[in-house]
């Protein structure tokens, strides 16, 4: 079945270095057919039909530039670099120490109705939803972590699983977004299947069950951290580092939706997503994955699975990437 398809020509993952000058491959190198899809998604904000209930709240959904910022390749601001220099190491140590504590163990094991497939469907839906609002990748990561940890505590009926999804997104946004969504907007997203009271009640239940332990370390943080480490290395190529980060974010989004990746820690997923991105973009100076302190075996296992995921999702990946990145990487693995 599907599993078998990507095997051919899969590179040995760690430390593969291609010398091909594929870097800076531009649109001219791609046939029109190949281009069609990523270009169609170039300006996501402009294609949105009637925004949810025309709220006065942040019009982010309509600002195309904002949308791409969640997955885009912004260079790191000098101030960020300076602060990373002061604190990056301790941030990393602290988050790495805590990620185990926040790691949901087999959240679907005791769920009578929620399946891996339903979870995949829900998160596949949350991905465009969070982009529609212009929320950060950090919010999505937090939402999925809250969702999974809640699932370890409480059996959830299939027909309120979507409500759980928007409620965890709601909580995540309250943690990190300047303008969290309105309850009304979230209810509209679910075609007004649920009531205001239901959403607020579920919010209380989640907060109670998780005892307000919400500040989980995220893949997003580790992507930023490893990118910073790479920029600081003397041979850094900022262009490569930023592109790898943007592609890795897209791959990481896909991995959130696949329950098979639930067992991997965020730091491992982050470093492997970057490693895979470097391979796909044929970078000359890829990230040294051993910075992460994971063994070769563990890294390779995770990389292989990510590779499989990416080849299964060739259609979806461009949708979660900034257009310039998807142009570059879309077909390199074929």
């Amino acid at each position: 079945m599907v599993t078998t398809s990507p095997a051919e020509g899969r590179p040995s993952a760690v430390g593969r270095r291609r010398r091909t000058p594929a870097k800076r491959q531009r649109a001219e190198d791609v046939t029109p057919e190949e281009r069609a899809e990523p270009q169609g998604s170039a300006e996501p904000g402009l294609q949105l039909r009637a925004p949810v209930k025309k709220s006065k709240a942040p019009p982010v959904g309509r600002v195309a530039g904002r949308l791409s910022s969640s997955g885009g390749c912004q260079p790191m601001h000098p101030l960020e670099l300076r602060v990373f220099r002061d604190y990056g190491q301790s941030w990393y140590r602290f988050r790495k120490e805590r990620e185990g504590k926040f790691h949901p163990l087999d959240p679907l094991a005791r769920q009578p109705q929620v399946t891996a497939e339903a979870r995949c469907k829900l998160i596949s839906w949350l991905i465009p939803v969070h982009k529609h609002f212009g929320f950060s990748f950090e919010s999505l990561c937090l939402a999925v972590n809250t969702l999974d940890r809640f699932l370890t505590t409480t059996p959830v009926a299939a027909d309120c699983f979507q409500l759980l999804g928007v409620t965890t997104l709601f909580i995540a946004c309250k943690q990190v977004e300047v303008h969290p969504p309105k309850v009304k907007q979230l209810l509209a997203l679910c075609c007004d299947t649920f009531s205001h009271q239901q959403l607020c009640n579920l919010e209380c239940i989640i907060l109670n069950k998780l005892r307000f332990n919400l500040a989980a370390p995220t893949i997003n943080f580790f992507l930023e951290y490893f990118t910073y480490v790479r920029m600081e290395a003397c041979e850094a190529d900022a262009w490569e580092a930023n592109n790898a980060k943007a592609l890795a974010k897209g791959v990481a989004e896909l991995s959130l939706a696949d329950y098979a990746f639930n067992k991997y820690m965020p730091s491992l997923l982050a470093v492997c997503c970057l490693g895979l991105a470097d391979q796909m973009l044929h970078h000359q100076r890829p990230l040294d994955l051993h910075l992460s302190d994971y063994s070769e075996e563990i890294l390779q296992d995770c990389l292989d699975k990510l590779h499989l995921l990416v080849s299964l999702n060739e259609d979806s990946l461009p949708l979660v990437l900034p257009p310039e990145i998807s142009e570059q990487c879309l077909h390199v693995d074929k």
């Binding site: 039909r49 529609h132 979660v320």
Partner: peptide, 17 residues
């Protein structure tokens, strides 16, 4: 099970395999 958002155009919908 998931109610779909009308505001998200077909080509932006993500369905992760």
């Amino acid at each position: 099970v998931i109610k779909h958002l009308d505001t998200i155009p077909e080509d932006k919908k993500v369905r992760v395999q």
